[in-house]
Computed example of a mutant assay.
Amino acid sequence: MSDVVLRGRMTAEADGDVVVFLIGMRINRFRAVRAWLPVFRAMPRMLRELAAEPAHGLLAHRLLLSGPREFAVIQYWECADKLLSYASAGDAEHRPAWAAFNRRARAADGAVGVWHETYVVPAGSREAIYIDMPRYGLAAAYPAVPVRSGRDRAAQRLGAGAEA
């Protein structure tokens, strides 16, 4: 992702539904490194695989640190079908990583936690604004365009269907 700042007020131009996938882990016991380190290492492998093969459907992602024990990734996908297809593909990184996590989790007795949430956001049910920011969030997944006249307020953009 580029760190080039887009000057002014921008919005994300996304037509149709937007799929947002949030996934994270929480280290519950720091000393149980054998339980949480493989989980921590699995996500970068999956993100590299997804970046190398755009047909899987990942449009953009952002890594987040929520303190010393919590890590998360925000992901934007082309559609829910592609997200679900990747998650269940036997020849992709996710499925073996998930199986290995489940085996280790039973033996780790709660040393590491994993969570995810999936949102399919229909057109007209989202709004985005970026002021003097690099491409970020939804605008990293879809074109970033200047806010048009008549779409200056959040309520106007929210009811616009497409974000611009």
Results as ranks from 00 to 15, higher is better:
Phe71Met: 06
Leu59Asn: 03
Ala139Trp: 02
His61Glu: 09
Tyr142Met: 05
Tyr136Pro: 01
Gly8Ala: 07
Pro122Glu: 14
Arg135Val: 08
Phe101Leu: 06
Pro122Ser: 09
Asn28Asp: 04
Ala155Gln: 09
Leu65Gln: 12
Ala111Gly: 10
Gly159Cys: 04
Cys79Arg: 14
Ala87Ile: 03
Asn28Leu: 12
Gly16Phe: 01
Phe71Glu: 02
Ala51Tyr: 02
Leu138Asn: 09
Arg95Tyr: 08
Arg41Cys: 09
Ala141Ser: 09
Arg157Met: 09
Leu64Ser: 14
Gly137Ala: 09
Phe101Ile: 01
Arg48Leu: 10
Phe30Arg: 15
Gly161Gln: 04
Arg153Pro: 00
Ala92Glu: 14
Gly90Asn: 04
Glu78Arg: 12
Glu117Lys: 15
Ser149Asn: 09
Glu13Thr: 11
Tyr76Gln: 10
Ala12Asn: 03
Asp132Val: 03
Arg48Glu: 13
Ala42Trp: 14
Gly113Cys: 02
Glu117Tyr: 14
Ala108Ser: 10
Gly161Arg: 12
Arg34Gln: 10
Phe30Thr: 00
Glu117Ala: 08
Pro143Asn: 03
Ala107Asp: 13
Val39Pro: 01
Pro96Val: 01
Val33Gln: 15
Asp152Trp: 11
Val147Lys: 12
Leu138His: 07
Glu70Trp: 01
Trp36Ile: 07
Leu63Thr: 14
Trp115Pro: 10
Leu47Asp: 04
Pro122Tyr: 10
Met46Ser: 06
Val114Arg: 15
Val121Pro: 13
Ala12Cys: 07
Arg135Trp: 02
Trp98Phe: 08
Arg135Met: 06
Ser2Asn: 08
Pro96Lys: 00
Tyr119Ile: 00
Phe21Arg: 04
Pro143Tyr: 13
Gly113Ile: 03
Gly159Gln: 10
